[in-house]
Design a protein around this nucleic acid. Structure first.
Lengths: 337, 337
DNA sequence: ATGAAAGCGCTAACAT
DNA sequence: ATGTTAGCGCTTTCAT
């Protein structure tokens, strides 16, 4: 008894044609007569035949699998980019293998497994860090890099324009009349934090506002770190009238620390975050923030990767995404005293 | 010129053995003499040989790929479960294909692609909904179900004990002296919301507290829905002294609505959420909630799935995870007036 | 302990 | 328009 899944040859036998003709039919190739085609189609239906992807992949030398490697899956920005990448990949007939690689060692092991063994046709690398882990990739494997700035050294990348985004954020505070402006950065070992910092500097420089030493501090993206930094500023009796915080989680920490100190927001302190995470509107007060289209970034990355894979020789592409100011209640014009 | 990746045969030629022997070596089989083994190993090193996963998969009839299908990737609970599943899968030599399927149609299409075409060896299905999409799976494909309650009809499942968790939450409010207790549920078309509701009812029943009609309302998990529901209660002049909210996002909405109405929390209103999402401690006030080990659930699901795949005939397994009360400042004893 | 032969289920190249 | 013949790079079975 044949209990297994039907193969091309079973279909061919039933339809009374060669297995090659069946192959032509399932691949929608020309040069098959309508009658033959329909006979084959019928056979496919009756046998519930579905081509075995593994065999197809081996024969074609391609797996139709993409990998998306990010430090983790739970940060909203990564999750949403991966969702975008998966969405687009599937549209194009590919599937997405998720791969969390917090450390560079994990990354290396993953690359070895996914690419060394030819499991995937290409990779999307989300690398917020400054390390150049992408250089661990064999040069000939299709790769799209998602980072925090333009990378001249990488042929294909999709990135958020953190520099301009941060300038916009800083300028918003400046436009509100603030001149004592603090900054809570992410780890400066990350591109994204550096870029946002550069944008901040640039905006203040252009407005001829001095950066107050002691009012730029480095956090770790966690709410707790934002909280601690603001407390420290208060202890040092250095309280700005506005703060640009490089992500919303830390901004929430700042909000809380400020309120614990009895500061009224936004009357006595304006706070602007970054990322516009889903609950930004639900903090107290609702958080002004910089929105980024993380889902779109993921989509573009996947679309580009598929083009790289299928085109063979695509000219370099650098796709930039802007960040957009979302006004809420945590920022306001400075009060005259 | 041979520019391609080396194959088993290249290694064999270099080592002066048959390709079969090389196969034995890379698979760590016995019956290979130490000298031969080391000769082969050397050849592997010099050629940088890595077995082609596709070929291996075809020959073995297995892909070493698992699929994790969830409604989406961005909800923290799903993301973190997937991260757990991926972590465990990789430990076991498998890779994880992520697959978002918000609707049952997406789900069906995905199943057809992933399973019909033998792309994956098994699937983890996260189904919070009441629909029985898992029945769309061919019966013989290894499947682990992650849901909101024990499922007698499914051989392998991992679930959060929402019923008991919700009872615990309700009892916490009761223990604080509350008797007018409201409830904001998720969509009752979801298992998880139903179970949490049952737990709520049960706790109140056991404490001989009547459920006030009009104080149990159905939201959609969004902060906005929690906000609206509480406003509605206020308009109807029906304000409880405590609310059990079935997830933290809606709880945040309730918090905000209550504060907008001038209610002091927790003095005038106790609020308990569910899920203990990362920022729960950073709301105002910090949110008391029920923690669940979503990462662990994902791990267990993957581990179980691999066992199902490899054991061939595993007896049914139902793995239960408890929810745990995390006390913060949004709940307090009722005030005497 | 090692090798030869066959085959996994498909696609590709060539013939007719 | 269709069929024939070879692979893709492994594993498996069976000899030796």
């Amino acid at each position: 008894v044949k209990n297994d899944n039907p193969t091309l040859r079973d279909v061919a036998a039933l339809a009374g044609v060669s297995h090659q003709t069946v192959s032509r039919v399932i691949n929608g190739e020309a040069h098959v007569s309508p009658e033959t085609r329909s006979r084959v189609d019928t056979a496919i239906q009756t046998l519930h035949f579905r081509p075995n992807a593994l065999a197809r992949h081996l024969a074609r030398g391609r797996s139709n699998l993409l990998a998306a490697i990010a430090p983790n899956l739970v940060d909203y920005t990564f999750a949403s980019s991966q969702e975008g990448a998966e969405f687009e990949a599937r549209k194009q007939g590919y599937y997405l293998v998720t791969s969390s690689a917090p450390t560079i060692n994990d990354f290396e092991a993953l690359i070895e497994q996914l690419i060394g063994h030819r499991r995937v046709d290409g990779v999307i690398v989300f690398n917020p860090y400054l390390d150049s882990r992408h250089t661990l990739l064999p040069g000939d494997i299709p790769m799209v890099f998602c980072g925090g700035r333009e990378r001249e050294d990488i042929p294909y990348c999709v990135y958020l324009d953190n520099f301009s985004g941060s300038m916009t954020a800083a300028r918003h505070l400046i436009d509100l009349g603030h001149t004592r402006i603090g900054e809570v950065t992410g780890p400066l070992s990350e591109d994204c934090a550096q870029e946002r910092h550069r944008g901040f500097e640039q905006a203040l420089f252009m407005a001829k506002i001095e950066i107050e030493p002691g009012l730029t501090s480095e956090g770790d993206w966690s709410a707790t770190s934002g909280h601690k930094i603001f407390q420290k500023w208060a202890e040092d009796r250095q309280i700005p009238t506005a703060v640009l915080v490089q992500n919303d989680r830390m901004a929430v920490g700042v909000l809380r620390a400020a309120r614990d100190l009895g500061l009224k927001i936004p009357e006595q302190l304006s706070v602007i975050g970054f990322d516009d995470m889903p609950l930004a509107a639900y903090f107290d007060p609702p958080l002004t923030s910089m929105r980024q289209d993380t889902f779109g970034i993921g989509c573009e990355a996947a679309r580009l990767l598929v083009r790289v894979i299928e085109a063979g020789n695509l000219p370099p592409q650098h796709i930039r995404f802007p960040a957009e100011l979302v006004l809420r209640a945590s920022t306001a014009p400075i009060e005259r005293r």
